[in-house]
C-alpha cells in the first residue's frame, strides 16, 4: 500500500515540478516579450521606453541569468508570492484568486460529486434493462458530446432569459452588500443554480455510460455467472457487479478532473460568475499575465491534490492495493 501511494506521490511531485517549470518557461521563451507589451501599453514618449524597459527588466529580475531566475521563481512560489495583477495594480494575484476560489469550488465540488454519484446509479440501473437503456444511452452520449458552455448558454436562454426563472449573470444580486445575511445567502444560492445545473448535466452523461458498460461487462464475468448458477437473487449479483464496476469509475474520476475544471471555467464565463474562469477571462482580455499564470498554478495544485485524495480513497476501497497485489496499474 505504501509502495502504491509512494509511486503516485512521486508522479505528482514530478508533475508539479514540470508544471511550475512550464509556468516559468512560457513567458521567457515565447515569441514576444511581456515587458515590451507592458511598456507599449503605458505608451510614453519614445525615449522613455528604453528607461522603462530596463526598469521593468530589473524589477522582474529578468536581467539575471536564467538559472537564477528559475530559483527565484521557486522561492517566490514557496513564499506564496504569485506577483501582482496588472489590471488591478497593485493587488497581489493571490488575493484575487482567493476571492474567486470559493465560487469555483462551490460550483465544482457539488457538480463533480453529485454527477458522479447520480451517473453511476443511473448507469447501473440502465444496464441490461432494455427500456431504460434505450433512453439513457442516447441521452448520455448527447450530454457528453455537448460543449459545457453551450449547455450553459441554452439553460441561460430558456430558463433565464425567456422564462425568467433564474438570473442570467453574476454570483449574487449586485444591489446586495456582501455579508453573512440570509438574504445574501439566498441570492448566492439562486445565482448558483443554473451554472451548477449545466456543469452537472454535461458530466452526468459520461458517468452513466461508463457505469452501464462496466456493469454489462461485470454481469458477463465468471463470478456473476457462478452466482447466478447457484441461484443467487438478481439483486445480490448486481450488488457485486456494482462494487466491482465502481473501481474504474473512481480512477476515471481522477482522469476527468482536468476536463471538468476546464468546463467550469467556460461555464463561469457564460454566467459572468465571479470565479476563476471569469478571472482568467479578464486576465486574457487585459493581458494580465501574472493572473493567468497564477490561476494556472492554482488549478495544477488543486487537480494534483484531488488526484491524491482519489488515490487514497482507491486504496481504502480496493483491498488489492493494500496487500501489494496489482490493483490499478500505477
Amino acid at each position: 500500500m505504501l509502495r502504491y501511494l509512494a509511486r503516485k506521490l512521486f508522479i505528482y511531485l514530478l508533475t508539479f515540478i514540470v508544471a511550475v517549470t512550464i509556468d516559468w518557461a512560457i513567458p521567457r521563451f515565447m515569441p514576444g516579450n511581456p515587458v515590451d507589451a507592458l511598456v507599449s501599453r503605458i505608451a510614453l514618449m519614445p525615449d522613455a521606453n528604453a528607461a522603462l524597459t530596463s526598469y521593468f527588466m530589473a524589477a522582474f529580475n529578468l536581467d539575471q541569468p536564467l538559472w537564477q531566475q528559475y530559483l527565484n521563481f521557486w522561492s517566490a512560489l514557496f513564499h506564496g508570492d504569485l506577483g501582482r495583477s496588472i489590471m488591478l495594480f497593485p493587488t497581489p494575484v493571490t488575493t484575487l484568486i482567493g476571492r474567486a476560489l470559493p465560487y469555483t469550488l462551490g460550483l465544482l465540488l457539488p457538480s463533480i460529486l453529485l454527477s458522479w454519484y447520480v451517473g453511476n446509479v443511473v448507469g447501473a440501473l440502465a444496464a441490461r434493462r432494455k427500456l431504460l437503456d434505450n433512453s439513457v444511452l442516447p441521452l448520455g452520449y448527447l450530454l457528453t458530446a455537448t460543449p459545457y458552455m453551450w449547455l450553459g448558454i441554452l439553460l441561460a436562454w430558456v430558463l433565464g432569459s425567456t422564462l425568467g426563472w433564474f438570473p442570467l449573470a453574476f454570483g449574487y444580486d449586485q444591489s446586495l452588500k456582501v455579508e453573512w445575511s440570509w438574504q445574501f445567502l439566498g441570492s448566492l444560492l439562486y445565482h448558483w443554480v443554473l451554472p451548477f445545473a449545466s456543469l452537472f448535466m454535461v458530466a452526468l452523461g459520461g458517468w452513466a455510460i461508463g457505469m452501464r458498460n462496466m456493469i454489462i461487462y461485470e454481469l458477463e464475468s465468471d463470478y456473476a455467472n457462478y452466482l447466478m448458477a447457484l441461484g443467487a437473487p438478481q439483486r445480490l449479483v448486481r450488488k457485486y457487479a456494482f462494487r466491482n464496476a465502481m473501481l474504474p469509475q473512481i480512477t476515471g474520476l481522477a482522469l476527468q478532473l482536468g476536463a471538468v475544471v476546464g468546463g467550469a471555467l467556460v461555464t463561469e464565463i457564460v454566467f459572468s460568475y465571479p470565479g476563476l474562469g471569469w478571472l482568467v477571462l479578464s486576465g486574457i482580455q487585459n493581458q494580465d499575465y501574472f493572473v493567468i499564470q497564477g490561476v494556472f498554478l492554482f488549478i495544477i495544485v488543486g487537480v494534483l491534490l484531488a488526484n491524491l485524495i482519489v488515490d487514497i480513497v482507491y486504496v481504502i476501497v480496493d483491498p488489492r492495493t493494500r496487500v501489494g497485489l496489482q490493483g490499478d496499474a500505477a
Binding site: I11, Y12, L14, T15, V18, A19, I22, D23, I26, P27, M30, P31, G32, P34, L255, L257, G258, A259, V261, G262, L265, V280, G283, I284, Y289, I292, Q293, V295, F296, I299, I300, V303, L304, N307, A330
Partner: peptide, 24 residues
C-alpha cells in the same frame, strides 16, 4: 509510462490556456 502519467495528470486545458495567452 512516467512521461504518459505526468501528461495525463496535468490539467492540459490549463496548459493550453497559458500557452495560448502568450501567443499573440
Amino acid at each position: 509510462n512516467m512521461l504518459t502519467n505526468v501528461v495525463l495528470v496535468i490539467p492540459t486545458f490549463a496548459v493550453l490556456l497559458v500557452v495560448a495567452a502568450y501567443l499573440s
